[in-house]
Nucleic acid binder design. Structure first.
Length: 897
RNA sequence: GCCGGGAUGGUGGAACUGGUAGACGCGCCGGACUCAAAAUCCGGUGUCCGAGAGGAUGUGGGGGUUCAAGUCCCCCUCCCGGCACCA
């Protein structure tokens, strides 16, 4: 055995050993229970960053841990290979996206292998390969025929200079990132997955995922956004041109009597109609159509609007309400029109304040109600008749000032009551809480639910509305006007319409040798690609040149791993049944909504096709915190440029790297692996923080991780802690006190580590391991020989999922066994944890004043007496008596003076 | 803007279910070894007052509940993730 720790040699040897043993091939006919451990596959951006290392180390730790617990583990890996960055790289470096992608995959695969991950590489999938995406195309044609996929128009960001559709992140301050041209919203035809048809199920099944973080489930629930509300129609007469009704959807029908105007989106027919004869309005509508489509931009825009001059009639009280065009109303959302209740909605209030529109309170909080009653009572007491007219804010303020100035000699009590009421109204503008209806005619006095039901019933009776359940979730548009993606398998025939490509013609292969110019879609310029015959009538037809959203590939890869080479179907049903669902999924928190929702949706689609069983793809989910970069942002929070923490060099945004804010993590993992080895890199990353916590990387602390491994090696070399039967429970009844204490320390650290493994808190597993080594180093050969061997074998096994190379090497070198992967997982020996005497903390009024040792089974009265006798307590009490004594068994005694 | 998180020493983080705040590391300070340095080992290290014993104070800010609050409740600030064409 070498005296020095030489990670390069031992890691190469250990990896070769696993390779020879085919140690990580997932067995198809194992009697052991299966454990499918999946880490989100990487986009092949070029090189590994710390986020990858963190993700894949977590996955490997869980895989190896479960393997030692007796599971048949499957841990696959693959490449999310289609996407925008490859096209950007092509533009920047003149390399075809395919070549760039394959070369990146080659390099990153080497990097992953050098980390010593226990991956079954025989299952590798690459989404840009026709063998993979042909099945995606196949499913598309099936779903198209079933009507789950349909076509409609939708808005995109159009760059009028580059004649290209831009991704949201390519629109910076309303301009194209390359051309600088002002971006326009343009409506184009696209294919959509009818995900809304599954909205109810996607929502309900979240309740059947106890292994998912609550945080993620909450985000998904809010995203699906089931709401109970009402359709309300605001009729208009021929004055507008023709008779009709403006339909809106609201979740607050109880505030209907407080509506003071209605607002429509710029794209709404009513806006277009009004703009036809109004140049100023037409210009405003055009202005609203400028800029990007991203919701964050729209929502943070300054609220602007313009009066159309049109009016609609309030369906219940017949009052005419003005129609405004407002940029905060979105066409693709609900009905593209809203009823505005400024008194009880933040955005409506802000808008009404800005344009001087009336505010009418119709919901009163208990406070407001009480203050109004008090005011009324005082008016009566002073001999005046209270005015119970509408609480239109302006009218109310006028009324209140009338009370103060026009009434003869108002009493002090009345003046106070007016001020209190006015003050409360001020506080409650806008009041978005539920409350009691006021100033709402026959509905006054009702609570939310009563008003909801009554108003909905009245609307329905008049044919002017009804209750409706609505989802916030929108259908999933998957058409992309880009080259580097999976071709949509549709042929457009002038005679037959949209015809799906027949099975025998699949896959529609994406040509790999192309030149990317940055203007327009490359496929649309390739007649050899798009010219084709209609599969139905044989006539001349045109192939669809749009490709699919890359979220589609990542929505089903987890299922493909079960039978990666299956050439007869999307999945081999037997293999899918064996391996699915995924037992543990691990990936970044940034995927909490979109990717995870789409994958859940796809599982249900595949289930309905009879391909997979079960309703959900991922049983347990671990969301990893982001690995941050220091990013400078503009006023809208968009990155202007990222700075590499380590050396301050700027990093290109939207360049050849994956376009992600997390692409640069300040520390290059390869440099750490080269200098210290994979075990140090893995240990360092697991020790830095718990997996779900976000982390800013710096390499301080890498040295400490390396030092720890070196100490382990040195300990093994100098102390040779081998035992014939490591892990055998030892009878400690005769052992000397120091040895008992050392054993207790080791087993209590082990107990903590096992508990932390269960919580996926690997940083404290590492600290427990460090404590064990600290204890072992305190042992002398003579007093604790066998304990050392026992303790060291615990240490190696505890660390083996995290630092597998050194653990395997020492396990073998010291003769514990051939393969640490086959060793049983260590469990804490409860007998070793027993203590006769324990330390108790003494508090006086909750403040720490001392401690005492007592027998572990000392009773309450005895402990109280011991505490009272304690000098520190005597001093604090200063002769006084204790009011109360709180004893927390095994922990503390608190004397309350 | 909306939805979801987060904030603990110089620093990464720990603290089971409301019960000794700062485990385990990094860094720093002092010491040993050495011709010297590196490596290694030993000791110390929240802040303030104090020679010391000890005391006060302390978990982003403000309030509250409790014998006891980093932990529970209310309000606020800042930071991070997502917002449907980045992946």
């Amino acid at each position: 055995m070498r005296p020095d720790y030489t990670p390069k040699d031992i890691e190469a040897a250990a990896q070769q050993h696993w390779e020879e043993q085919q140690a990580f091939r997932a067995g198809e006919d194992s009697p052991k229970p299966k454990y499918y451990c999946l880490s989100m596959f990487p986009y092949p951006s070029g090189k590994l960053h710390m986020g990858h290392v963190r993700n894949y180390t977590i996955g490997d730790v869980l895989s190896r841990y479960h393997r030692m617990q007796g599971f048949n583990v499957m841990q696959p890996m693959g490449w999310d290979a289609f996407g925008l960055p490859a096209e950007n790289a092509a533009l920047a470096n003149n390399v075809p996206p395919a070549a760039w992608t394959y070369s990146n995959i080659g390099h990153m695969k080497q990097q992953l292998k050098s980390l010593g991950l226990g991956i079954d590489w025989s299952r590798e999938v690459t989404t840009c390969r026709p063998e993979y995406y042909r099945w995606e195309q196949w499913l598309f044609t099936r779903l198209f025929e079933k009507g789950v996929i349909y076509k409609k128009t939708a808005g995109v960001n159009w760059d009028p200079v580059d004649c290209t559709v831009l991704a949201n992140e390519q629109v910076i301050d309303g301009r194209g990132w390359r051309s600088g041209a002002l971006v326009e919203k343009r409506e184009i035809p696209m294919y959509f997955f009818r995900i809304t048809q599954y909205a109810e199920e996607l929502l309900a099944d979240l309740d059947r995922l106890p292994g998912w973080p609550e945080q993620v489930k909450t985000m998904q629930r809010n995203w699906v956004g089931k709401s109970y509300g009402c359709e309300v129609e605001f009729p208009y007469g021929t004055a507008i041109g023709k008779e009709g009704a403006l339909k809106v959807y609201t979740t607050r029908p109880d505030t209907l009597m407080g509506a003071t105007y209605v607002a429509v989106a710029a794209e709404h027919p009513l806006a277009a109609q009004a703009a036809a004869g109004n140049k100023e309005l037409a210009a405003f509508v055009a202005e609203c159509k400028r800029g990007g489509t991203a919701e964050a931009d729209v929502a943070t825009m300054e609220k602007k609007g313009m009066d159309t001059g049109l009016f609609v009639r309030h369906p219940l009280n017949g009052v005419n309400l003005p129609v405004w065009v407002a940029n905060y109303v979105l066409m693709g959302y609900g009905e593209g029109a809203v009823m505005a209740v400024p008194a009880h909605d933040e955005r409506d209030y802000e808008f009404a304040e800005k344009y001087g529109l009336p505010v009418k309170h119709v919901i009163a909080s208990p406070d407001l109600l009480n203050k109004w009653k008090k005011l009324e009572a005082q008016l009566l007491a002073d001999g005046h008749e209270p005015d119970r007219n509408d609480l239109d804010q302006a009218g109310m303020i006028a009324y209140l000032s009338h009370v103060l100035s026009d009434l003869p000699a108002p009493s002090d009590a009345l003046i106070e009551a007016v001020h209190e009421f006015a003050g409360q109204m001020e506080i409650e503008s806008p009041n978005t809480e539920y409350g009691t209806l006021v100033c709402s005619g026959e509905y006054s006095g009702m609570d939310f639910q009563q008003a909801f039901d009554a108003i909905a019933a009245d609307l329905q009776a008049q044919g002017m509305g009804k209750k409706r359940t609505q989802f916030r979730l929108r259908d999933w548009g998957i058409s992309r006007q880009r080259y580097w993606g999976c071709p949509i398998p549709i042929i457009h025939c002038p005679a037959c319409g949209d015809v799906p490509v027949p099975d025998e013609q699949l896959p529609v292969v994406l040509p790999e040798n192309v030149t990317v110019t940055g203007t327009g879609s490359p496929l649309a310029k390739m007649p050899e690609f798009y010219r084709c015959a209609c599969p139905k009538c044989g006539g001349e037809a045109r192939r669809e040149t749009d490709t699919m959203d890359t979220f589609v590939e990542s929505s089903w890869y987890y299922a493909r791993y079960a039978s990666p080479a299956c050439s007869s179907g999307m999945v081999d049903k037997i293999a899918a049944q064996r391996w699915l669902p995924v037992d543990q999924y691990i990936g970044g928190i940034e995927h909490a909504i979109l990717h995870l929702l789409y994958a859940r949706f796809f599982h249900k689609l595949m289930r309905d096709e009879g391909l997979v069983q079960g309703d959900e793809p991922f049983i347990n989910l671990l969301t990893q915190g982001m690995a941050d970069v220091e990013v400078e942002t503009d006023a809208k929070g968009r990155p202007l440029g990222a700075k590499l923490r380590a050396d301050g060099l700027p990093v290109a945004i939207g360049g050849t790297e994956k376009m992600s804010k997390s692409k640069n993590n300040g520390v290059d993992p390869q440099a750490i692996i080269d200098k210290y080895g994979a075990d140090t890199a893995r240990l360092f990353i697991m020790f830095a923080a718990p997996p779900d916590q976000q982390l800013e990387w710096s390499d301080s602390g890498v040295e400490g991780a390396y030092r720890f491994l070196r100490r382990i090696w040195h300990f093994a070399h100098t102390r040779r802690p081998a035992g014939a039967n490591p892990g055998l429970a030892r009878d400690l009844s005769d052992a000397a006190q120091p040895e008992k204490e050392r054993c207790r320390e080791i087993h209590s650290a082990l107990k903590q580590a096992n508990n932390d493994f269960g919580k996926h808190q690997f940083n404290t597993v590492v600290s427990a391991s460090m404590k064990i080594l600290n204890t072992l180093e305190k042992c002398s050969d003579t007093d604790s020989g066998p304990a050392i061997a026992d303790g060291f074998s615990i240490l190696l096994r505890l660390l083996s999922p995290i630092t597998p190379h050194i653990a395997q090497t020492l396990w073998q070198e010291l003769g514990y066994g051939d393969d640490i992967l086959a060793a049983p997982w260590p469990e804490a020996d409860e007998a070793a944890l027993e203590q006769d005497e324990i330390e108790l903390v003494i508090q006086v009024n909750g403040k720490l004043r001392g401690s005492l040792r007592a027998a572990k089974d000392a009773d309450q009265a005895m402990l109280e007496n011991l505490a009272l006798a304690h000098p520190a307590v005597q001093k604090q009490l200063a002769g006084g008596a204790a009011k109360k004594i709180v004893v927390v068994p095994g922990r503390l005694i608190n004397v309350v003076a």
